[in-house]
Design a protein around this nucleic acid. Structure first.
Lengths: 208, 208
DNA sequence: CCTACCGATCGGTAGG
DNA sequence: CCTACCGATCGGTAGG
């Protein structure tokens, strides 16, 4: 027998899978700066010191590369924002943690060109297709996470029962997105302070 | 003498200037959908039933075409949003009118791909150059207009003197931008209702 | 405003 | 994973 499949369940990756992962790490960074369409196979191959066709063989089409890049970005977002926030206990603490972790994610430039999903949504919102659908799905999942955290905060008695969870999630996300674009355009982190201040006031007014 | 320069001061345009204007009308619409970079000279020429080089001669470079397109988009925005809002009297009425006109501008798809400036800012925020600078300038002018309207509303006694005009302008704009991106991604106008509701509450809490 | 062209780069393929 | 290639399109130019 060649190897024990049962041992070390996760890090057991084939060489091809490892190459694919390192391609996607670079692809995510490149796409956050140049856009998901500006992410060209030639450019990415140069960045990785590979041949175009060698890289291409891992994906089969540009669309598949784009979809795989979105998937890799989702994993990075989950690790950097969602996972830390889930350590806070449910209710208002977790809602606050989601906002705090998102602001940290923006400030620390987890993606070098700013929030991957905000940029990709703006780029693809007028181009029907699988890429657009997956980006919209990722955005919806994030807003949904905020909305559910608001609802739990209401259930825990931390927020007023009269609060419209969908409306509050929309407004919180609006502050975060605005901070992201403001920061990208002006390279001034006070945009995140403004978002923080706006969200603090939103949560204060929603509190019992 | 060929013509009286003094008569009809504005509509006196040369044939070249009229052609240029009709090119830019199409360029603005195309760019709002495909992006300012996706606005290619070949694509634009096809749309206008012109030769590439004939169109190119009006601008001299792609960057000049992009800059002229931004200028044309600013004019459309000024006519559709700013001018109507300036009919309202200074203070809170004008601030409310700016928000109302902006929401109308979004709902009516004055640019077929959504707010031209929001899309262009997201597209170019990581690409240094003249195009990026002009877009940032246009965005700053809009936020500044909101900020000044807030300040006037404070001076008129319509809003509390404790209000931070820059912060409020940021938060109002955040609602508008979020509604724009939400609408582009979901094609559901309830995003504008959410923005309206959020802004109404912002202004209510800021009122004396 | 046109035809005719340039070198560079795009996504993708053949064949190994 | 590679070399070598394809047709299409890019921004831009020559010359009229």
């Amino acid at each position: 027998m060649k190897s024990s499949a049962a041992a070390e369940s996760l890090p057991r990756l084939t060489a091809g899978e490892r190459t694919r992962q390192s391609i996607l790490d670079v692809a995510v960074d490149l796409a956050s700066v140049e856009g998901l369409d500006g992410l060209t196979i030639g450019r990415l191959a140069t960045e990785l010191d590979m041949s175009k066709s060698g890289l291409f063989a891992h994906f089969g089409s540009k669309e598949e590369l784009q979809l795989a890049t979105i998937e890799a970005a989702k994993h990075r977002f989950a690790a950097e924002v969602v996972a830390p926030a889930l350590k806070a206990k449910r209710g208002l603490p977790r809602l606050s943690a989601l906002c705090k972790e998102w602001i940290g994610y923006g400030q620390d430039s987890v993606f070098p060109g700013g929030c991957f999903f905000a940029a990709a949504a703006a780029e693809f919102d007028s181009r029907p297709g699988l890429v657009r659908d997956r980006i919209a799905e990722a955005m919806d999942q994030w807003i949904d996470m905020l909305r559910i955290a608001v609802r739990k905060a209401i259930e825990e008695g931390d927020l007023l029962s009269s609060i419209d969870s969908e409306q509050l999630a929309f407004e919180i996300n609006a502050m975060l997105m605005a901070a992201n674009f403001d920061f990208q355009l002006h390279d001034d982190k006070k945009a995140f302070d403004r978002a923080k201040k706006g969200i603090d006031r939103l949560l204060h007014h929603a509190s019992a």
